[in-house]
Nucleic acid binder design. Structure first.
Lengths: 206, 206
DNA sequence: TCATTATATGAATTGATATTCACAAGATGA
DNA sequence: TCATCTTGTGAATATCAATTCATATAATGA
């Protein structure tokens, strides 16, 4: 894409992204309201006024950031899972991809979590228009895979697939948050097999 | 306790609680920053100045609310589980208590969730001093029960108890959030058995 | 080089809302 | 009934941070 842009455009896009990066760090650290436009400007090494040449308001900046990153994350996740066949392999891939993305963008995952939990119940436009639709794509992918899993006898047929997806998503999130708490992604990485067993076999002694 | 108070004290405590109730509704609806002190005052049917006779700042009001309610919820949960024996019975009790509390205080659970996710990573004083210590009491109760469960052979011994607690807490939260999303607590209540099976047996066909 | 255009700056403005405080109203008990 | 003490009021003030804009600086290309 950047090949088709002139230097002007390319530099503009570069600055735009620098601002998003700065915003990501600030918002992840101190939340939307705890972050001032000046904070972001300082971190990006621009004057306040300059930010307003790129984004019409603090709100727009925040929305642009969430949109950009959520779309990137979900896209990356779906691509990683694209060619995987077999229920167990898919779940493993889902979990491992979560590790990779968490390693690549820990700040954003903190931010995303806040967005997911904080604005979820408030049903903000951002949640409805950007976060949820993207998230739904992932849920759909998992749902279809689990339906296939039931059909071929790998998964039990007395639990709704949506409930299985909720369980998988939340078990993995639980370990992820615990790791983000301690700023220790390796901790999450070592739990891949634990999550697999918890999800597929549960905790009961067999 | 209220028996030992004079009318003065009792009335003061009553007003104090009325303000907390009003604050709970406002904060749950519009978040901390979206709520003005005037909103709370109006809802409580007091003048702004009066609120400041009870709480020295908006921040103090918020902290008092979270502290009060978190302590109440955890206490109620622990008491409900106090005499339960047997791993399966305890887990069922945990899940069912969550339904009851969610029914009793849905607004606060929305607020609590926000607090848990939003301030968790920011490691606010409120999180460190109030929310987490209470939460930990619950984790301890479950941890001990699961250790007993392993000892008596009801639970597998190749997964750390802390991980089991994380899984249980997050599976149940997943269904809880889904229900709170739709403002439909009954939806959560119908999932008790599903959560039990997911937690104990997992999704694999046996 | 110089005129023109694009980009960057940050002090000044604006708007919102948390907090204060001088005063009012109500309760209490002599 | 009156003096005193307690509680309630909300307009006025203080604070903080988003946004604007007149001006400065840098890039372009004739």
């Amino acid at each position: 894409m950047s090949g088709s842009m002139g230097r002007r455009e390319r530099e503009h896009a570069q600055r735009y992204n620098d601002i998003l990066d700065a915003a990501e760090e600030c918002f992840a650290e101190k939340g939307f309201h705890g972050t001032t436009v000046e904070d972001v400007a300082n971190r990006a090494e621009f004057a306040v006024g300059t930010l307003y040449k790129f984004f019409s308001s603090k709100d727009e900046l925040y929305k642009a950031l969430i949109k950009e990153r959520v779309e990137y994350l979900i896209q990356a996740g779906l691509e990683a899972m694209a060619d995987v066949v077999g229920t167990e392999e898919l779940v493993r891939c889902y979990i491992e991809t979560k590790v990779r993305l968490c390693r690549a963008k820990p700040n954003f995952l903190r931010l995303y979590t806040r967005e997911r939990m904080g604005d979820r119940f408030a049903k903000t436009e951002l949640w409805r228009e950007v976060v949820w639709p993207n998230f739904e794509r992932l849920y759909t992918r998992l749902t279809e895979a689990f339906e296939a899993g039931i059909a071929e006898g790998a998964l039990r047929d007395d639990i709704e697939v949506f409930d299985m997806v909720v369980a998988l998503d939340n078990i993995t999130d639980g370990f992820l948050f615990d790791a983000l708490d301690d700023d220790d992604i390796d901790k999450y990485a070592t739990k891949v097999e634990v999550m697999m067993r918890l999800f597929f076999d549960g905790v009961a002694r067999k």
